[in-house]
């Protein structure tokens, strides 16, 4: 087995293992903390796919910011008192069945489709290529995203603010 394959399986195990903890843990704080190894595992997958820039942004935004935000909100709302509360609704069995069916479907599609491959090679300096793409063919998407970012910034402040 090559080093890349070993790295892939280790990273996949970390991602899915801590993903299971996120999904099933009865303690919400444990779920939130388990998000960190999940995101870091996905970061490793990005590195394997030679997408270094996406990988660092993943650490910066997901592991460094979104997890902190989630932990913050858990501690501001019910915090530790949630340990005694029921965390799962009555749809456990149906949910599991739906998720399993979905997984089966997706995996079947992924395995059976003969994926085409376009010619070309990945650029060696990906941040530069990404920047060129953002300010070139994807300029409209870039601008649209920045508008959404501004709107959600304002929206989050308005929603979370205490009424006086």
């Amino acid at each position: 087995m090559s080093g890349e394959a070993i790295a892939f399986y280790v990273l996949a195990a970390v991602t899915l293992g801590s993903g299971v903890v996120v999904v099933t843990s009865p303690n919400v704080v444990h779920s939130a903390v388990a998000l960190v190894p999940t995101f870091l595992g996905v970061t490793g997958i990005y590195v394997l796919l030679s997408a270094e820039f996406v990988a660092v942004i993943q650490v910066l935004i997901y592991a460094g910011a979104i997890t902190v935000l989630i932990l913050f909100v858990i501690m501001l709302t019910e915090g530790g008192t949630g340990i005694r509360a029921r965390q799962r609704n009555e749809q456990g069995a149906i949910g599991a069945a739906v998720a399993a069916a979905m997984a089966g479907l997706l995996i079947a599609v992924a395995v059976r489709t003969p994926w085409a491959r376009l010619p070309g090679t990945l650029p060696t300096y990906t941040p530069g290529a990404i920047g060129q793409s953002f300010l070139g063919p994807n300029l409209l998407v870039f601008e649209g995203t920045s508008v959404v970012l501004l709107v959600s910034l304002v929206g989050a402040i308005v929603i979370a603010r205490k009424e006086e």
């Binding site: 991602t15 299971v20 999904v23 599991a96 979905m102 997706l106």
Partner: peptide
């Protein structure tokens, strides 16, 4: 793709069954 499918379904399971 298989890894991503499994991760997606874990997330789906959480969305369907979690109360919080």
């Amino acid at each position: 793709l298989v890894l991503s499918a499994l991760l997606f379904c874990l997330g789906l399971f959480a969305v369907v069954t979690r109360r919080n």
